[in-house]
Computed example of a mutant assay.
Amino acid sequence: MTHMKKFQDIIMSKSMRGLCKEEDYTFLAMTEKNPEGAVEGALEKDCRDRKEDRVRRRLEREQLEKERIREIEEIKKEKEQQWRTHVEKLTSNQEKNLQERLTRLRRFREFQRKVLVGESGMEGRLAVNQLLPRM
């Protein structure tokens, strides 16, 4: 009945009192061993535990954030590298196409020159050289 005497001043419903009996007995056991120090020590320990838990969770969040940022940067670098490779391929293909086109154009000009020289004869060589740039 010590339980009833110590907690009778606390206003509480009967059902709530039934739910809290086990906690009350635990609390009473702690206060009987060390009336003042145990309660304060338990509260301090509980506060320390909560603080450590908050710090631990904060560090975990920071670590996850750093990892997420690192992954984003890696993906960004990979995309940049893919883009550079793509641009290099396009540039190289364009240069190759231009070189092939230049070669075909030179061959065609040589062919034109041969045809014009053949049609006009040797004396028309000067006229052919003047005529070709106009084309």
Rank of each mutant, 00 (worst) to 15 (best):
Q94N: 02
T26I: 06
E71F: 03
L132T: 01
G37T: 11
E100Q: 12
R125M: 11
L28H: 08
P133F: 03
N97W: 05
L59W: 06
V39S: 01
Q82I: 10
I10V: 11
V55M: 05
K45C: 01
K96E: 09
Q82M: 13
K33A: 11
M1L: 04
R68S: 07
F111T: 15
L105G: 02
K79S: 05
E95K: 15
M135T: 03
E40F: 01
E78N: 11
N34V: 02
R134Y: 06
E95I: 05
G37Q: 11
M122V: 06
M1D: 06
H3A: 12
C20M: 14
R134I: 03
E95D: 13
E44Q: 10
K89T: 13
I69Q: 15
R54Y: 07
T2A: 08
E73Q: 15
R101V: 00
C47W: 09
D9K: 12
R101W: 04
E119D: 00
E32R: 11
L43F: 09
E52P: 00
E88M: 07
E74Y: 08
G18L: 14
L43M: 05
Q63M: 13
K89L: 10
R17V: 00
K76C: 05
D24K: 08
R58C: 01
K114D: 14
R109S: 15
K5G: 06
L19N: 11
M1C: 04
R125I: 13
K6P: 03
R134A: 04
R109A: 09
R54G: 01
R107K: 08
L19Y: 09
E74P: 01
Q94V: 07
E32Q: 12
I72T: 14
L43Y: 06
K77S: 13
D24M: 15
L28N: 01
E80F: 04
R58I: 05
S92C: 10
T31D: 02
V115W: 10
P35N: 07
R61K: 08
K66H: 12
V55S: 04
M16Q: 15
K76G: 06
F27A: 02
E32L: 07
R134F: 12
G18N: 11
R109W: 13
Y25P: 00
T91Q: 13
S120W: 15
D24C: 10
N97R: 03
L98C: 09
K96S: 14
R57M: 15
R106V: 14
V128D: 05
R70S: 08
R106K: 15
V55W: 09
E60R: 13
C20Q: 08
L43P: 01
P133K: 03
S15T: 14
S92A: 14
L28C: 04
Q82V: 09
H3K: 12
S120P: 00
D53T: 10
F111D: 11
N93T: 10
M135C: 00
A127K: 07
L98F: 14
L126Y: 05
L90P: 03
T2C: 04
E52W: 14
S13R: 01
F108L: 07
R125Y: 00
N34T: 07
F27S: 00
L59S: 04
K114Y: 03
T26A: 14
E44M: 04
R104Q: 09
T85F: 04
V87P: 00
R56G: 02
G118F: 02
K76Y: 09
D49C: 00
A38V: 00
N93F: 04
F7D: 03
Q63V: 06
I69D: 09
E36D: 07
K79A: 10
I75S: 10
L43H: 05
H86W: 12
Q8A: 12
K79D: 03
